[in-house]
Computed example of a mutant assay.
Amino acid sequence: MTDTSIAVLVGSLRSDSVNRKLAELLATQAPEGVAVDIVDGLGTIPFYNEDIDNASEIPATAAALRERVGAADRVLAVTPEYNGTMPAVLNNAIDWLSRPYGAGAMVGKPFGVIGTTPTPYGGRWAHEDAARSARIAGATVVEDVTVSQSAIEVDVLTDPDVLARLTNAVRLLAEYDAATAAA
């Protein structure tokens, strides 16, 4: 496999976030030739506002987000679920990445979403919302990558079966070939 870079958007700002720990663990276990870049600072990006985006100079944090995701080959969201949907910080990041319309930083990039919650559904609704939003932003959602893992009866950071599914998701995202998928 050639060198592939994956920009990771973590949907939790909590310092002791299990999803952040999961992203960090997956970064250390990435397949050979795959660089995983956890994009920090999502909490410092102002809420998307077209007036700000159309100003002569957009906020540096938003510009840095666009630059890092734009430079990546793939995008992976690692997120919990808040009140049945994706966290506002992830939604805001996707909003910034979706502009300018039709030419945003995620256009054409393979996108996957994984994560865990202490619920029976493991964040499935948040993951569906993130995938839908990313698709509208122009990303190519790789359905086989989605892993919604419940953390009720398992330690997601140490369980070998869970880690195998999650590392496999990263591998599938890294290996995704749009031309082959379309055939």
Score class of each variant (00 low, 15 high):
110 P>M: 05
90 L>G: 03
154 V>S: 13
47 F>W: 11
86 M>D: 04
136 I>W: 13
145 V>N: 03
123 G>P: 05
93 A>F: 05
85 T>H: 07
101 Y>A: 11
124 R>V: 15
122 G>R: 01
155 D>Y: 09
129 D>A: 11
21 K>L: 14
77 A>N: 05
173 L>F: 01
123 G>N: 02
89 V>W: 07
31 P>L: 10
110 P>F: 02
182 A>L: 15
120 P>T: 10
7 A>Q: 01
135 R>K: 12
177 D>W: 10
65 L>C: 05
115 G>I: 04
74 R>H: 00
100 P>S: 01
97 L>I: 04
63 A>M: 12
118 P>N: 11
1 M>D: 12
13 L>Y: 12
45 I>Q: 10
159 D>A: 08
62 A>S: 04
71 A>K: 08
117 T>C: 04
60 A>H: 04
60 A>G: 08
30 A>L: 03
130 A>Y: 04
20 R>T: 13
53 D>R: 11
113 V>D: 06
54 N>W: 11
68 R>M: 04
110 P>H: 05
78 V>Q: 03
91 N>G: 14
176 Y>F: 15
153 E>A: 14
134 A>C: 02
177 D>H: 08
121 Y>F: 14
82 Y>N: 12
39 V>Q: 15
147 V>Q: 14
83 N>I: 04
29 Q>G: 11
35 A>T: 15
90 L>K: 00
148 S>P: 07
36 V>A: 06
48 Y>K: 07
155 D>V: 11
8 V>D: 02
177 D>R: 07
4 T>Q: 11
6 I>V: 05
114 I>Y: 04
85 T>F: 06
19 N>F: 05
6 I>K: 02
151 A>T: 12
106 M>R: 07
95 D>W: 00
87 P>R: 00
141 V>F: 10
148 S>C: 02
45 I>R: 09
45 I>P: 05
111 F>K: 05
88 A>P: 06
30 A>E: 01
119 T>C: 11
170 V>E: 02
57 E>F: 02
181 A>V: 10
70 G>F: 02
79 T>F: 03
101 Y>H: 14
156 V>F: 04
73 D>F: 02
114 I>N: 01
17 S>Y: 07
183 A>I: 12
151 A>Q: 09
121 Y>L: 14
150 S>T: 10
76 L>H: 01
95 D>L: 02
53 D>K: 10
142 V>D: 00
92 N>Y: 01
87 P>S: 08
44 T>N: 15
44 T>R: 15
56 S>C: 03
106 M>Y: 10
70 G>N: 04
34 V>K: 02
109 K>A: 03
151 A>M: 08
8 V>H: 08
74 R>W: 00
179 A>W: 13
